[in-house]
Design a binder for these strands. Structure first.
Length: 334
DNA sequence: CGTCTGACTGCCC
DNA sequence: TGGGCAGCCAGAC
């Protein structure tokens, strides 16, 4: 059985299971860890369980004294942004703590975390549904809503998914599908086995590629709505595309202002429009790395400006008196 | 198409 | 310093 679990601190665990023919055979909700443990113990022992959450804190293995994990850095280089997992001494998000606890429960139920070696059954793995959607569809989200994009990536790859499935449920299915790819030895791992590895499918039409990397960068550099930065000067690519493309390249640990982005995209007075654009793409691009000209976070940031500052702090950005230290952390697009 | 609404900025007290 | 304010640009009806 190939199982996927979507972790949410407030909404509980969504659990999906696929059989070997990728039919959805189970879609359940577990309110808390105990309920999840009961379901886990009922699974066939040769199952693979994919969880949308990290199993452990960062161990600071990235060069340069950064605090996030190697997995985050590797994916960032591919243009995929995700929540940085902080080291032990920092406060993780509540859903990350749920993840740590869940992986412990799964280990006790007979599914220890898999980190390296040949793929095998009876393990749990960390996955990232957004990465799975992106690898499978070969494109970035574009104009589709997140849920439409998710559904499109799963269509024809999984059967039995209800039309009215929630985003959490689709993410659980995506995780289960990733477990299926893992069990069928078509997978890619990102990160360092000593602290945590994120697994993704190897897209079917490029099985020879060493990693999903070609697939991903291809999506960025060509067809996708993100367009190419090389062509940024031409009218061919919209302002919005250039903005998203550029923001996706702000390094971890650095920030840019709305004005910086606008200027670099050839529209010096478009700072306000940059905000408008970012507000619609908070999930796929690290929008928390964009602050206003004084270093202040956005009052409308998802979860509140405090959350934006917390995420920046966990990435190593210096915060002082509720604003980021622009002099120290400002990134200039070159 | 106009009109309205912001995850903005710089300038003026 | 910091608040007020008038431009500004891209999306959403």
């Amino acid at each position: 059985m190939h199982v996927g679990i979507d972790v949410s601190a407030t909404r509980g665990f969504d659990i999906a299971a696929l059989d070997d023919d990728r039919r959805l055979v189970l879609l359940a909700k577990a309110r808390d860890l105990d309920a999840a443990a009961v379901i886990a113990r009922g699974l066939p022992s040769e199952s693979v369980i994919a969880v949308d959450a990290p199993p452990a804190p960062s161990r600071g293995l990235v060069a340069g004294g950064k605090r996030f994990r190697v997995a985050e850095e590797e994916l960032h280089k591919l243009g995929v942004s995700l929540y940085p997992v902080p080291p032990d001494d920092a406060e993780p998000s509540s859903w990350m703590r749920e993840g740590y606890a869940l992986f412990e429960v799964l280990a006790k139920a007979g599914f220890p975390v898999f980190l390296e070696g040949p793929a095998r059954a009876s393990v749990s793995i960390e996955v990232y549904p957004h990465l799975t959607y992106r690898t499978l569809s070969g494109t970035v989200r574009g104009k589709l809503s997140k849920i439409e994009w998710s559904r499109a990536a799963l269509r024809r790859r999984v059967s039995g998914v209800q039309k009215d499935a929630t985003q959490d449920q689709l993410d659980a299915v995506a995780a289960a599908l990733t477990a299926w790819y893992f069990a069928h030895d078509r997978w890619v791992g990102y990160g360092d086995p000593r602290e945590g590895v994120i697994f993704a499918p190897l897209a079917e039409d490029r099985e020879e590629a060493p990693v999903g990397q070609d697939q991903l960068s291809l999506a960025i550099e060509t067809g996708g709505p993100m367009g190419s930065i090389a062509a940024a000067g031409t009218r061919e690519i919209s302002f919005a595309d250039r903005v998203l493309r550029l923001v996706s390249h702000i390094p971890l640990g650095r920030v840019a202002t709305y004005g910086d982005i606008a200027r670099a995209c050839g529209n010096p007075s478009g700072a306000r429009a940059v905000g408008t654009i970012l507000s619609g793409h908070a999930f796929e691009v690290p929008t928390h790395r964009v602050v206003d000209a004084r270093g202040l976070p956005s009052p409308a940031f998802g979860g509140g400006p405090g959350v934006q500052l917390e995420r920046l702090a966990s990435e190593g950005v210096r915060i002082e008196g509720g604003r980021v230290d622009l002099a120290a952390c400002r990134w200039s697009p070159a």
